[in-house]
């Protein structure tokens, strides 16, 4: 229960507030100032330099007819849905680690999961780009060595995809039909260090008496997961889901690095964030990009509040 502090006492200890002042200043300067500046500039025709002209809501009304922006939500929706499924391996691994009887081994597995976090995300992106290289990438070498490529060529003949050909390396990032699969495949086997740790925290908070009771009832290993573990880590799943949706909607680094500023073949990799980047740094329409960012912010806010309202966890 929170204790109440008298106003007099609050004012008496005013010096203490000086300690939090630097943090407030930094947050204001580096978090709120850029965000507020973006709100301000969204009402201007501004090309990033010194000159800008106030144009009211013109940028926002332009967004309504922006087919690329709204079209990019189709791509992001597919990626967001895929990302939800890509959470499964992390949950699975967390459960496996949790069920290890040796605490020592649990510790070492946790270390193994955390270790990749040291590798900068940019390096991971570059490595994956290298995997997709048509001529000497690992993916094509794997397909050739295992004979899957021949199978794909056969399927291509049958379905008339016009993508896979014998003796022609597969351009994973150079064919519009392969862009989304390549983006989904990225990060295989999709084990997120942070997600695993978050789920582990949830799993470790489950009392041992629950497991003991379940064992007395003769519950199988899978049933334990389905009826005990999964429902009890739903809070963590929900938090991860919210962060995942926000992250997916905001992110464009992967698409930018793998496909370039135009979203690659057929613009299939164009996501809202990348379109915002494209308008700002390629078309020089910084004011419009700010308006796009603001629009994206509202959408994310809406989705988060929907998620908070409807994805409830009954404990």
């Amino acid at each position: 229960m929170p204790t109440t502090i008298s106003k007099k006492k609050v004012l008496k200890e005013w010096k203490l507030y000086l300690f939090i002042l630097p943090s407030f200043l930094f947050i204001g300067l580096f978090a709120y100032y850029p965000a507020l500046s973006a709100v301000y500039h969204s009402f201007f025709s501004w090309s990033g330099g010194d000159t800008k002209e106030f144009i009211g809501l013109d940028n926002f009304s332009r967004i309504l007819g922006d087919t690329v922006f709204w079209g990019s939500f189709a791509t992001i929706s597919v990626l967001a849905i895929a990302n939800v499924f890509k959470m499964i391996p992390s949950i699975f691994l967390a459960v496996l680690i949790h069920r290890l009887s040796s605490e020592r081994w649990q510790y070492w597995y946790r270390v193994l999961v955390v270790l990749p976090m040291i590798v900068p995300s940019l390096v991971t992106l570059f490595i994956w780009k290298f995997f997709y290289d048509p001529n000497f990438g690992i993916l094509n070498q794997f397909l050739d060595a295992t004979g899957i490529k021949t199978l794909l060529v056969g399927l291509d003949h049958f379905f008339h995809w016009d993508i896979f050909f014998q003796n022609v390396p597969v351009a994973w990032l150079g064919e519009s039909a392969l862009v989304i699969p390549a983006l989904i495949l990225w990060g295989f086997p999709w084990i997120g260090s942070v997600s695993v740790l978050v789920f582990l925290v949830g799993l470790q908070s489950i009392g041992s008496q629950i497991y003991e009771a379940a064992e007395l009832d003769g519950v199988s290993s899978f049933q334990k997961f389905l009826y005990i573990e999964f429902p009890l880590i739903m809070t963590q799943v929900r938090v991860t889901l919210v962060l995942l949706i926000i992250g997916t909607l905001q992110s464009y680094g992967l698409q930018f690095l793998l496909l370039g500023e135009n979203g690659g073949p057929g613009g299939r990799g164009m996501v809202p964030g990348l379109w915002m980047f494209n308008r700002a740094f390629i078309a020089g329409e910084f004011g419009y990009a700010c308006a796009l960012g603001l629009c994206l912010f509202v959408i994310i806010l809406l989705l988060t509040s929907l998620n908070n309202k409807y994805v409830r966890v009954d404990k």
Binding site: P134, N135, A171, L173, G174, G260, G264
Partner: peptide
């Protein structure tokens, strides 16, 4: 004559 997918 260039590598497949060179535009990316």
């Amino acid at each position: 004559e260039m590598q497949p997918g060179f535009m990316q």
